[in-house]
């Protein structure tokens, strides 16, 4: 598994760095190893987050890609998490593809795009319900939280069995 993990990440990195550039608004900030990568996400066009930039942090272990990477917004060094009903102020994101709906056919870039479009489609800038309680008790790794996905943002609503 471990060999799959590093080889696949190097492929993804090579792809990001070569001719097929990541989509507009997504920029690689840091990928010094195969443990932590940081991207910059910006929502372009008409959205509530116009002009704001966010850091998206990926943490990998040797179970990647069979299990999802730990993904959260960067909330230190001057960066803040976006105000969004699915994003807690500690940077944790409640998105089904980072948990139950993860599939090894997804990639780092697919996650970036999903998060970008999650921000772009936001209607109301508000914090999630019970944000303070969660942030006080949340584990460091968002993957240890058992989120309940309570709305229709699941990418595979119809063909889940």
């Amino acid at each position: 598994m471990s060999t799959v993990y590093t080889r696949r990440l190097s492929k993804e990195l090579a792809e990001i760095q070569t001719e097929t550039k990541p989509p507009i608004g997504i920029r690689l900030l840091k990928a010094d190893d195969f443990e932590t990568w940081i991207f910059e996400i910006e929502v372009l066009g008409d959205s509530l987050y116009r002009g704001e930039r966010f850091g998206l942090k990926f943490r990998f272990d040797n179970s990647y890609p069979f299990s999802a990477p730990a993904v959260q917004f960067v909330v230190d060094s001057g960066m803040k998490a976006p105000v969004h009903p699915h994003v807690y102020t500690n940077g944790h994101i409640c998105a089904s593809i980072l948990g139950d709906d993860w599939s090894p056919t997804l990639s780092v870039m697919a996650v970036c795009i999903t998060i970008q479009s999650m921000l772009a489609s936001c209607k109301r800038k508000e914090l999630p319900e019970g944000n303070d309680t969660y942030v006080r008790t949340a584990p460091d790794n968002p993957k240890k939280t058992h989120f309940v996905y309570d709305d229709d943002t699941s990418p595979f609503p119809s063909n889940r069995v």
């Binding site: 080889r7 190097s10 492929k11 090579a14 792809e15």
Partner: peptide, 15 residues
Amino acid sequence: TVHDLLNNADIQDPL
């Protein structure tokens, strides 16, 4: 180190 890895690993892909 990552670049070394990328170069040494003999990564082939459709690109």
